Amino acid sequence: MAAPDSIAQILTRHKLRHTPVRRAVLQVLSGSPFALSGHEVEQQLREDVDRITLYRTLKTFEESGLIHRVIDTSDTVRYAACAVGCTAQAHFDDHVHFKCTSCQHIFCLNQVAIPAVTLPPSFQAQTRDYLLAGVCQQCQP
């Protein structure tokens, strides 16, 4: 979990105001070992946060390069903290995600890059998502 002073530094580096909700949401996401849905973030927040404010915060963080979306096979949108070097202009989320079929958590595998894919000339990719499924190390017998 990120220390409160590092949360402040991250918000400053991304030129975002330091509101209590932003600090709390970033604290939850940076402290989670797996991607969280908006509802899961809401449940972990200590203070009562308006749902609209929460989703606006998530959108702002995504646009600023603080977090990225992870979409699983059930089309549930989850959010994960980005690597330190991410910015709105250069979003470095080209890594593989792993969904555990036992606990249902989705993990960022930052050390595993999405393999290069050559598309036919008439196709143009706009996003790159790569999701592997299996059993995570905590759930293995």
Rank of each mutant, 00 (worst) to 15 (best):
A80D: 11
L54H: 11
V112E: 12
G31F: 01
R22T: 06
F34R: 04
G85M: 07
E40C: 02
F92V: 14
E42W: 08
I7Y: 00
Q137A: 09
R17K: 14
H95A: 10
R78P: 05
I106F: 00
C82N: 15
R128N: 07
T12L: 14
R22C: 04
L36W: 00
S32D: 03
I7F: 06
E40L: 10
S102K: 13
Q104R: 13
G85F: 02
T53R: 02
R78S: 12
Q126D: 10
E42H: 14
L26S: 11
L26W: 03
I114G: 03
Q44R: 15
P121C: 04
R23S: 12
A81K: 07
Q104Y: 03
S6D: 14
I114Q: 11
E63Q: 15
T57G: 04
H97S: 08
H14D: 07
D48K: 14
G65L: 15
N110I: 05
V77D: 04
V135D: 03
K59V: 06
T60N: 07
A83I: 15
M1I: 14
T76H: 04
V49H: 01
A3R: 14
Q124E: 13
C100Y: 03
D72W: 03
S122F: 03
V77L: 12
T60W: 03
A8P: 00
S102Y: 06
G31N: 05
F61C: 13
V41S: 11
A90W: 13
F107G: 09
P121L: 13
V84P: 05
R78M: 13
C100F: 08
P141M: 06
K59A: 11
A8S: 12
A81C: 11
R17D: 15
A88C: 12
G31H: 04
H68V: 07
A24Q: 11
L109S: 00
V70F: 00
V135H: 00
R69M: 13
H95V: 08
A2M: 13
P141F: 01
V28N: 02
I7W: 02
P20Q: 10
G65Q: 09
F123I: 07
V28D: 04
L45P: 02
P20K: 08
Q44V: 03
Q27N: 03
T19V: 05
T76W: 00
H14W: 14
T60Y: 04
A8K: 14
